[in-house]
Amino acid sequence: MKKAVLLVDDHGIVRSGLRALLEMEPDLCVAGEAADGIEAIAQVRRQAFDITVLDLSMPGKDGIDTLRDLQRIRPDMPVLILSGYAETQYALSLIRAGCRGYLSKDADPNEIVKAIRTICAGHRYVSAALASLLADQLAQPVDRALHELLSAREFQVFHKLASGRSATEIADELCLSVKTVSTYRSRVLEKMKLKTNADLTYYAIKHALIN
Rank of each mutant, 00 (worst) to 15 (best):
M1V: 12
K3Q: 11
V5Q: 04
V5N: 06
V5P: 04
L6Q: 09
D9K: 07
H11R: 15
G12E: 09
I13F: 12
R15P: 02
R15G: 07
S16R: 10
G17R: 08
G17P: 04
R19F: 06
L21Y: 01
L22E: 09
E23I: 03
M24F: 14
E25R: 14
E25G: 07
P26I: 12
C29I: 14
C29N: 15
C29A: 13
C29H: 15
V30F: 03
G32E: 05
A34K: 04
A34P: 02
D36H: 10
D36A: 02
A40L: 12
I41M: 12
V44N: 02
R45N: 12
R46I: 04
D50L: 00
D50W: 01
V53I: 09
V53A: 07
D55H: 05
S57A: 11
S57P: 07
M58F: 07
G60L: 06
D62Y: 07
G63A: 10
G63M: 07
G63V: 09
G63H: 02
G63I: 09
Q71D: 07
Q71N: 13
I73G: 04
M77G: 03
L80A: 11
L82R: 03
L82S: 01
L82P: 05
S83C: 12
G84E: 14
A86I: 05
Y90K: 14
Y90L: 13
I95N: 11
R96F: 11
A97H: 07
C99Q: 06
R100L: 10
G101H: 08
G101W: 06
K105L: 10
A107K: 01
D108F: 12
P109T: 08
P109H: 09
P109E: 05
P109M: 15
N110A: 15
V113L: 14
A115V: 07
I116V: 14
I116R: 05
T118S: 15
G122T: 00
H123N: 13
H123K: 08
Y125V: 02
L130V: 14
A131Y: 02
S132W: 08
D136A: 15
Q137S: 09
L138R: 04
P141L: 06
P141W: 09
P141V: 00
P141D: 04
D143I: 04
D143R: 14
D143P: 03
R144Q: 06
E148R: 04
E148W: 01
L150Q: 01
L150E: 06
R153T: 11
E154N: 00
E154V: 00
F155R: 07
Q156P: 03
K160A: 11
K160M: 15
K160I: 04
L161S: 00
S163C: 02
S166H: 00
T168S: 10
I170V: 09
I170C: 12
A171E: 12
D172F: 07
E173H: 15
L176R: 11
S177I: 13
V178F: 01
V178Q: 12
V181D: 09
V181E: 06
T183V: 14
R185F: 01
V188W: 05
V188C: 08
L189H: 06
L189G: 03
K195M: 10
D199S: 05
L200W: 03
A204R: 00
K206R: 15
K206H: 12
A208L: 12
L209G: 14
L209V: 01
I210C: 00
I210Q: 01
N211E: 10
N211I: 08
